[in-house]
Design a protein around this nucleic acid. Structure first.
Lengths: 202, 202
DNA sequence: AAAAAATTTAAACATTTGTTTTAAACAAAA
DNA sequence: TTTTGTTTAAAACAAATGTTTAAATTTTTT
């Protein structure tokens, strides 16, 4: 019972903290605000997580894993074609981003501000460069640095969500039209990426 | 003479502030740090700019203008073809971003955190939707929402710079290879955008 | 050169914020 | 019931931070 309650409180704090950190960033999020929204005493936050820094580190590591755990099995699946991989990546990632639209901008910004938290990612280079996807891209178009395609694909997926605050603020399009656009992109991005891969003018 | 000195100090503070705000964001930049790097007394910052908030507002407005002043004459030039516009946009914007690589992530993040600063941009919708570029895109491919192309073009241009901290941190590629990639993209992005515009599978 | 105005500095103020301490409330075990 | 360990709350602490004040210094004007 005590354990259940403990886990409960601890988790509530963590999820509220995740929400606030993601929305406002590390510096603009205060322990007092986390405690207030979690409806617990300030001291409890430090009681369960030792420090603001440690709480943030835990959340960053979880978010980071969440971001990459989705793509790893896809890009390394030896039994799928390049087209299938791209289709799967686009579909899964856009679904994921629609659930957590603020995650990319938050992560990219915090990584910029505190590159120390990125010790985890020394393996990233290996993960990407040795992936099955990377090899298939090289086969398909040996003339161009495959990182171009990775950037293009990731950019097409992520960029609309990074621009979302600008879009809302400038009232460029409303939220329904935005989601409609994302749905269209699920169909279109694989086509576009294929066009780019097959471009003979390079 | 007094005027010159005043302008001098004032400008020094502003440029240091711009550098720090751009690198660390609003919350993580302190007036004391700005004063220290500018080699002036803390009170001088408030003497010239009244408040941290006001100083930040001025810098944001200038940066914002800087970002859009470049594209406005290009996308609204009635005497250039769509191809020429795209070529010019890509070339100018990549040059600009290589000079100020941290600007996009900074701006996007601050816009997310404080959408109040975006009063300036109510005109953005008009600017984009009534632009000559937009009309030419619609002519070229009437079947797809032109915002897709805007997102793709902007994403291809900006996304590598937004990813730069991740790239450095994960040591995916070194800085020389990064700049080499950007140079390649000056040539490639217009080709890719053209491929996408001509895609008949949509 | 004297007076006035503008610029700069040092110090203090008032809040905010992360953290710690101390003790009370509570649940589980003896 | 008493004891023991865990969880929660209130308060205090210390450092950081935006801002203001008042005096000193420098520059400009008369």
């Amino acid at each position: 019972m005590a354990l259940a309650k403990k886990e409960d409180t601890q988790n509530k704090i963590k999820e509220i903290a995740r929400k606030l950190f993601t929305r406002f960033g590390y510096s603009s999020t205060t322990i007092r605000e986390i405690a207030k929204e979690s409806q617990v005493n300030i001291a409890l936050v430090n009681y369960y997580f030792r420090s603001k820094d440690n709480l943030f580190r835990i959340i960053m590591e979880e978010s980071f894993e969440q971001l990459f755990i989705q793509i790893d099995p896809i890009i390394n699946n030896k039994n799928t074609t390049l087209e299938e991989k791209i289709q799967s990546l686009v579909s899964n990632y856009l679904d994921f981003l629609q659930k957590f639209p603020e995650l990319p901008l938050f992560m990219l910004n915090e990584i910029k501000n505190k590159p120390k938290h990125l010790v985890i990612k020394i393996s990233l280079k290996k993960k990407v460069s040795q992936s099955s996807l990377m090899h298939q891209i090289k086969e398909r178009n040996p003339y161009i640095n495959p990182l171009h395609f990775i950037f293009n694909l990731l950019g097409m997926l992520v960029f609309p969500f990074i621009m979302k605050p600008v879009i809302s603020s400038a009232k460029l399009i409303n939220i329904d039209d935005f989601n409609q656009m994302i749905s269209e992109r699920k169909r279109l991005i694989p086509i576009w990426i294929n066009d780019i891969l097959e471009s003979k003018k390079t």
